[in-house]
């Protein structure tokens, strides 16, 4: 469905996307996980035809997106980070008018708007103003809007950023339904839970590069081991504990209050000899993968 090879985006002297390659298969939900500034949004904007490709190849649904971004926009739906909803018209009209942009006639646009309102459980708010919606509803409306044109591929840029946990769950629920409907989804996120729950496969990005690719489980298994250890030093023992871990040859990430130690070969790290610290084990997650790859947390600035 999507094939990127050596994709580059430069803004003047700054390189936002530095020669990334990836492939998205038809029907899957594909994630881009990385911190702010990883180049996720720039990549998605290039895919959406909103940002010219500096260099490299980008093919979407058999269309050369570098040469003909408009043909790409005929077959995709885009949900940007800021919802870009239209406050001058009603919720329903936001969907109808979006159909007009795709060249739908009035009847078809209205019918599609109602279908989409039903599907996203927004029908009751159809006549309301967009400004009266909660943040979670606004996001759901902007996702709904991307479906008015029956796209083959939907691009979501950080679909739950800025939402409270309850709204986030609602959006996840909805995205899970979409996923089962067979549409191909490409989404960016900096929430590892989101990537783990929704994505069939993902790439981990940092500073414009792809650092790892695979299914969430596979990435965790290969790069973080089954379990990660959290080592919390006792009062005044921080440096001592750090030295012990280092001497033990462990894969250690310092994330401030605690050290995170990852195992190797699928085994958890044996820390029975460490003294002066409380050691707890938990299941490894994508955050651990990111830590091993970059030495930093996903939300570090």
């Amino acid at each position: 469905m999507v094939r990127a090879a050596g994709l580059i985006k430069k803004f003047g002297a700054f390189t936002a996307v530095d020669g990334i390659s990836f492939e998205v298969r038809r029907g899957e939900t594909f994630g881009m996980l990385g911190p702010n500034g990883a180049g996720k949004t720039s990549t998605l904007r290039m895919m959406s035809g909103l940002s010219p490709v500096t260099a490299g190849e980008l093919e979407i649904d058999g269309i050369d997106a570098t040469a003909n971004p408009r043909s790409v926009r005929d077959v995709i739906g885009v949900v940007s980070q800021h919802d870009g909803l239209d406050p001058d018209i009603s919720v329903r009209d936001n969907l109808t008018v979006y159909g007009f942009y795709f060249g739908l006639d009035r009847d078809t646009a209205r019918r599609r708007a109602d279908e989409v309102l039903d599907f996203f459980a927004l029908r009751a708010r159809g006549d309301d103003s967009v400004d009266d919606l909660s943040g979670g509803m606004r996001r759901r409306l902007s996702i709904a809007r991307a479906f008015v044109s029956r796209p083959r591929l939907v691009i979501l840029d950080e679909p739950t950023t800025g939402l409270d946990p309850a709204s986030r769950n609602r959006v996840w629920e909805q995205l899970a339904v979409l996923k089962n409907s067979g549409v191909t989804v490409v989404m960016s996120t900096h929430y590892m839970e989101e990537a783990a729950i929704l994505c069939d496969r993902l790439v981990i990005m940092d500073e414009g590069r792809v650092l790892g690719a695979g299914t969430p489980d596979q990435l965790i298994q290969d790069l973080a081991g089954a379990e990660a250890a959290q080592v919390r030093p006792e009062e005044g023992r921080r440096e001592d504990v750090q030295r012990q871990l280092k001497d033990g040859g462990h894969d250690v990430s310092d994330i401030g209050a605690v050290f995170v130690v990852h195992g190797s070969d699928g085994q958890r790290a044996d820390l029975s000899t460490i003294s002066g610290a409380r050691v707890t084990y938990r299941a490894a997650n994508l955050e651990d993968v990111f830590l091993t790859l970059t030495g930093r947390g996903l939300r570090d600035e």
């Binding site: 959406s48 909103l50 043909s71 926009r73 800021h82 979006y98």
Partner: peptide
């Protein structure tokens, strides 16, 4: 809104 319009064809 222009961003949304331009994301359509």
């Amino acid at each position: 809104i222009y961003d949304s319009i331009l994301a359509a064809p």
